[in-house]
């Protein structure tokens, strides 16, 4: 058993084109470390240098946004399914103001 991770098009350059990869870990943070060991560079697209979840992606644990489950501390287990999607956002507002508005 493992944790299934669905990877969006924009990040498939890190997975050799694979749409679904597998990993393991007890928390989302641990899972991402495991994925990064196999797919070097993936972590940098999911986690900021400050150690928070990147605002450009949404990560879901089964049917829930991990931001509502403790973010990187969210507990994961074999049989869970993780989905990564590009966050769809934008608008006329300047980037810094948009980031502040999003609060992340």
């Amino acid at each position: 058993m493992a944790i299934e991770v669905r990877v969006p098009t924009i990040l498939r350059s890190y997975t050799g084109g694979a749409k679904v990869v597998e990993g393991s870990g007890d928390t989302l943070s641990g899972l991402i470390d495991d994925l990064d060991a196999k797919h070097n560079g993936l972590k940098g697209r999911l986690i900021t240098p400050e150690g928070g979840l990147h605002r450009f992606v949404n990560i879901y644990l089964n049917d829930e946004d991990v931001r509502f489950l403790g973010a990187l501390d969210a507990k994961v287990a074999d049989g869970d399914s993780i989905t990564i999607l590009p966050a769809v956002a934008g608008g006329a507002l300047g980037f810094a103001a948009a980031a502040a508005l999003l609060g992340r």
Partner: peptide, 25 residues
């Protein structure tokens, strides 16, 4: 297609639009 409106400015991608654009296709 991913679409959105600008309601007071031109129909050209802002820096925010470009930063977030995550569907290369």
């Amino acid at each position: 297609i991913i679409y959105h409106s600008h309601t007071a400015t031109e129909a050209y991608p802002s820096r925010t639009d470009i930063s977030f654009a995550g569907e290369p296709g």
